[in-house]
Simulated assay, not measured.
Amino acid sequence: MKILVTGTAGFIGHHTALKLALRGDDVIGLDNINDYYDVRVKYGRLKNSGIIKNIADGEFFPYAEPVRSSVYPTYRFVKINLEDRENITKLFETEKFDAVCHLAAQAGVRYSIDNPHAYIKSNIDGFMNILESCRHTGVKNLCFASSSSVYGLNKEIPFKTSHSVDHPISLYAATKKSNEMMAHTYSHLFDIHTTGLRFFTVYGPWGRPDMALFIFTKAALEGKPINVFNNGEMFRDFTYIDDIVEGVVRVLDNPAKPDADFNGTDPSTSSAPYKIYNIGNSVPVNLMDFIKAIEAKLGKTIEKNMMPIQPGDLHTTYADASDLTLHTGYKPSTSIEDGVGRFIDWYLDFYDIKL
């Protein structure tokens, strides 16, 4: 297939693009390389992808001139803002994609409290440009990133896609729920097969510097304390990046289909070719146990500042991913100890740190 993967200077997008390129798909990656977090990590991901030409800050490639990877022959990269409707449109018209894997977004629950407009521009306006471009260029297979954050005030555990998600507690979550509803509309009106994936706390090599594993590892190596929210009484369905990418690729290979038995009660399915899946490990881990895995790998005890829960944070995330397993055979297999260990090995190598 010829596949557009958005967000390929980002964490999940980077790994997904390389997985698809390795199996021989014709992949174009897209990102705007913004400075939400340390851009050195984003440029590092691009360099790891073989994209090392003309990626200076502020320079945007014309839509018609993607840069080809020096490592992966079927991978090219283009730098465009999602909200740049003109160039997104030209990209779609020129490249004529078979499928789109839309992973780019303004991420972060806490950041959305102070920077709400960034989320509307990227997650709403940007997603609309993706949907419209799919509509007008005949793309019928669209997979897009949602989030476990949409569950908000839901108290039922584990989280099931059949649950209501009408009570988000961050603007980030609200934009992701909006994406799901926008996608359903385009599935119904224009027969675009859309699949939304609610990601659950993804971690691993090339991870985001604003995520707990990165923050905790950095602090431990620098001998600094970490802030542990809700006094450590938090549970997260940590899911290793390789397991996540395997699920994403399986979804791309199995586009959503209309549900012949749809009766209007399950928000994760439809009479339109539309589907929502949870994608997680389905094994929630106590935050303190996660920290212990970091300490064990590093051979260090980390000083901890016990703090109250942050606005917008969920106490527990726990994915019921049985639907995804049923339809695609998805089955994560990486333990916390192995996953944390691989991340720390990558971190030490990337920053050239010797223990």
Rank of each mutant, 00 (worst) to 15 (best):
P284E: 08
R45E: 04
N141H: 09
I157S: 05
H327N: 13
N154Q: 14
T6N: 02
Y151Q: 03
V100N: 06
E95K: 02
F61C: 10
I120W: 08
D289V: 04
K176Q: 05
T325M: 14
L326P: 00
S148T: 09
S146R: 07
T137A: 05
L189W: 15
S268H: 07
L91N: 01
R40D: 12
V285G: 06
V248I: 15
P308L: 06
S122D: 02
A293Y: 01
D345H: 03
Y43E: 01
P225E: 08
V100I: 06
V71H: 12
N281H: 11
D242T: 13
Y330C: 02
P158M: 00
V78D: 03
A145N: 09
F159E: 08
E180F: 08
F262H: 05
V248L: 12
V71D: 14
I353H: 11
L131R: 02
S146H: 08
Y277N: 03
H193R: 15
I344G: 00
G7C: 04
R110H: 13
T334F: 03
Y318S: 12
D191I: 15
I130Q: 08
N230W: 05
K331R: 13
A256G: 05
A99H: 06
G329N: 03
P73R: 11
L314V: 04
N87P: 03
S148F: 11
G339F: 06
C143T: 15
F262R: 00
T89H: 11
Y119S: 02
N254E: 13
K96T: 08
S133A: 14
S333A: 15
T316W: 05
A9M: 06
Q310H: 14
S268P: 04
I344L: 00
D266S: 11
L189R: 15
A64P: 01
S133Y: 04
N123I: 09
Y37T: 10
F350Q: 11
G44S: 05
R208L: 05
P62V: 14
T217G: 12
V109R: 10
W346P: 06
G29E: 00
D98L: 10
N305L: 10
V39S: 13
I120D: 04
R342E: 15
P284W: 10
V283R: 14
T8F: 06
N305H: 15
H14T: 07
E180K: 06
G207T: 03
P225T: 06
S282T: 08
R135H: 11
I51G: 05
N32F: 11
F229V: 04
F229Y: 14
T201K: 13
N48R: 14
G204C: 01
G29T: 01
R76Q: 07
V5L: 01
T201D: 15
K224W: 09
K140N: 12
D259N: 13
T137G: 01
T94N: 11
H193F: 10
N87M: 00
S282I: 07
L326M: 12
N81W: 11
K155A: 14
K90P: 03
T161W: 03
T201S: 15
